[in-house]
Amino acid sequence: MAKYILKRILYMIPTLFVISIISFAIIQLPPGDFLTSYVATLRQQGEDIDATAIKALEEQYGLNQPIYVQYGKWMRNILLYGDFGLSFEWRRPVKDLIWERIGLTVFISLLTILVTWIISIPAAVYVATHQYSFLDYLISFISFVGLGTPGFLIALVYLWIMLSVFGVNAAGLFSEQYINAPWNWDKIVDMMSRIWAPVLILALDNTAGIIRTVRANLLDELNKPYVETARAKGLKERILIWKYPVRVALNPFFSTVGWTLAALVSGETLVAVVLNIQTSGPLLLRALTSQDMYLAGAFVLLLSALTVLGTLISDILLAIADPRIRLEG
């Protein structure tokens, strides 16, 4: 087992290397760079900027060097100093901007996964064991609707209802007095009282899919002979369903934690924009549209690294859950 994990961690290194190159390439790809658009904006506003000033700015940001040198510098600073460069737009170090947001993103994502599972797995088990019952149809109907309704729409509807019915501004993760306050117990309590809405909205987005997949998996497993063996032992039906077929039907799910994380991080963007939540999504979106390259690069890199890490975690979970995997590792 330890060997398996070590091997998987070693495999991560080349993957991360490729990711770092891609992250860097992505931000270099669009024509023009931040400076060009910055200069264009300044000119539009009637400010006069001469060639030497532009040159000086290029020098300052290292934009005149060959790409591989820029990449090398970027990586070295990240690895040695945790320095992701400067955000052109915010004129602040990238690392000051991202950590809180990435932390919040991971927290919301994990909470969402947890809530998703707590809702969808029992629902899926019920639906699979009560095929063609009224609740089966009802849950299937709801999950079809959920599958077809984008989360940001639900978020909008939620905001509108809160505002028009209760007169509450539900946007944002914090009440006004806490927005810029340092972290303390009251701020956490305030956040927890508001966080359930985005978490539920994000979870609903995913439950539909999970219910359908688990239901299908479980319907397959329910007809396997080992379930009949368990039944022939004299076990109570509910106990045996959870111990045997559900257990096996959930195995594939451990392997999806990785990309569920990735999907959440991106799917969360729109909901977060709508609900005005300061997670990474909105900031990444903005960085990409304004070509704030170091900020965007840092996000792409960290979120991809998170996904790779998530995949590792899910593989380890799967290996623990399914004894058939271990030997092959």
Binding site: K224, P225, Y226, E228, T229, A230, A232, K243, Y244, R247, V248, N251, A321, D322, P323, R324
Partner: peptide, 16 residues
């Protein structure tokens, strides 16, 4: 008690 035909699939793959 009962013994079934398929010794492979009649035992749970994820329990000892």
């Amino acid at each position: 008690a009962m013994v079934f035909q398929e010794p492979m699939s009649s035992l749970s793959p994820v329990h000892t």
